[in-house]
C-alpha cells in the first residue's frame, strides 16, 4: 500500500552568520549549505498494516511523510501510495490519504470545529450518512461535542489535536499518515486517540504509517517498525522482534537469607559470568547482561541453596532502550568509516 524506494531529499539551506555584522554581510553574500534529509530510504507497508516510522530528531521522518503525502518532491527515488505516485494525481491522492501533522492545523482557524467537518465532508464528497456516522463515532471516542461550537483558534493544543485526528480520519481514507499525532495530549486523550485509530483501522482496514517520539503511541497502534537514522533506513521488521533485539536484559531479585549482599553479588557474577550485578536495595540485587546470560533461570540457578527467593522480576526491555542501542550501533560503523 505504501512503497518508498531509495528516497532522498537534499535541502539547500542558507547559512546565517552570527552577530549583527554577520547579518549585514549576509545581505551581499550568502553561503548555501546542502542538508541531506533523506539518503536512500526504502521500505514498504502492506495494506491494512500499522507501521511506526521511527528515528531521532532530524532523521528524516517528517520529510518522508511529506513525500508520501505528495507535498514535497524527493530529490531522487520514488514512492507510491495506494498504487499511485503522490504527485501525479494530487486530488485523487488527497482523497486516498488522511494526514495529521502534529504542529499544523487542517481545520479552519476562524470557524467552529463542526463547521470544519461540514466543509471537509463537502470537499471529500461524502454522503450525509457517512459524515453523520463518523461524527457520531468521533463524538463518542474523542468527545468532540464539547468543542464543536468553538472556533478552532480558541481551542487548547490538546482540544485541537483531538479535532485534527478526527479530521484526518473523517473522509475514510485508505492510508493514514500520522506525524506526531498525540503531541500536547494528556494520557487519557492519548489513549482516546489510540482507541479511535485502532477502531477505525480494525473496521476499515486502513493502512497506517506513524511517526512519534512517544513510545506509547507506537506500542498501542503499531505492529511493525521502520527505523531511520541519518536519512537511511536501519531496521525494518516486527515490533516484537525489535524488542527482542535489546542488547541487555535485566533481572531483579529480592531475597532473604544470612549471606552478605557483597558475597551474593560476587557469587552471582562468578556463576553467570559476563554480567553486571549490583546491590539496588536492602536484600535486592540487579543482574544486567546479554539476553542469553541474564535470564531469570540463570539467576535462580546462581542463588540456589544460598538464599530464599522472595521475588524475581525480569521486565521487558522498553522500546526507548532498544532504539537507543540501535542508534548507537548504526552510528559506530559510520564513525569507523570516517
Amino acid at each position: 500500500m505504501i512503497e518508498a524506494h531509495e528516497l532522498s531529499k537534499v535541502f539547500k539551506v542558507r547559512k546565517m552568520r552570527p552577530g549583527l555584522w554577520g547579518a549585514v554581510r549576509g545581505l551581499v553574500s550568502a553561503d548555501v549549505e546542502e542538508v541531506r534529509a533523506l539518503d536512500g530510504v526504502s521500505f514498504s507497508v502492506p495494506a491494512g498494516e500499522r507501521t511506526a516510522y521511527l528515528g531521532v530528531n532530524g532523521a528524516g521522518k517528517s520529510t518522508t511523510i511529506k513525500a508520501l503525502a505528495g507535498v514535497l518532491t524527493p530529490t531522487s527515488g520514488h514512492c507510491r501510495v495506494a498504487g499511485r505516485d503522490p504527485r501525479a494525481d494530487r486530488y485523487a491522492h488527497a482523497r486516498t490519504i488522511g494526514v495529521v501533522f502534529g504542529h499544523r492545523t487542517q481545520l479552519w482557524w476562524d470557524l467552529p470545529v463542526e463547521e470544519s467537518f461540514r466543509i471537509l465532508a463537502r470537499l471529500h464528497d461524502m454522503s450525509k450518512e457517512d459524515a453523520a456516522l463518523n461524527r457520531k463515532l468521533f463524538d463518542e471516542v474523542l468527545d468532540l461535542g464539547e468543542i464543536a461550537h468553538r472556533p478552532v483558534r480558541t481551542l487548547s493544543l490538546g482540544q485541537r489535536m483531538r479535532a485534527e485526528v478526527a479530521a484526518a480520519l473523517f473522509h475514510n481514507p485508505r492510508v493514514l499518515l500520522l506525524d506526531e499525532p498525540t503531541i500536547g495530549l494528556d494520557l487519557l486523550l492519548k489513549e482516546a486517540v489510540h482507541e479511535l485509530v485502532n477502531r477505525v483501522v480494525a473496521d476499515r482496514g486502513t493502512t497506517v504509517l506513524l511517526t512519534s517520539h512517544d513510545v506509547a503511541d507506537i506500542t498501542a497502534i503499531c505492529e511493525r517498525v521502520v527505523v531511520v537514522d541519518s536519512g537511511r533506513d536501519v531496521y525494518t521488521g516486527d515490533l516484537d522482534d525489535l524488542l527482542r533485539q535489546a542488547p541487555t536484559r535485566t533481572v531483579r531479585l529480592d531475597y532473604s537469607g544470612d549471606i552478605s549482599p557483597e558475597s551474593l553479588v560476587s557469587h552471582v557474577r562468578h556463576y553467570i559470568g559476563l554480567v553486571q550485578v549490583e546491590i539496588v536495595g536492602r536484600r535486592r540485587i540487579k543482574v544486567e547482561g546479554p539476553p542469553d546470560l541474564a535470564t531469570p533461570q540463570a539467576v535462580l540457578n546462581a542463588v540456589s541453596g544460598l538464599v530464599t527467593v522472595t521475588d524475581l522480576v525480569a521486565p521487558e526491555p522498553t522500546l526507548g532502550e532498544v532504539l537507543r542501542a540501535l542508534y548507537v550501533r548504526t552510528a559506530e560503523p559510520a564513525r569507523g568509516a570516517r
Binding site: V71, Y91, A92, F101, R104, Q106, L123, H124
Partner: peptide, 8 residues
C-alpha cells in the same frame, strides 16, 4: 501543505 492535502 495543508492546502495541498485537499482535493481541490
Amino acid at each position: 501543505v495543508v492546502g495541498l492535502l485537499r482535493p481541490i
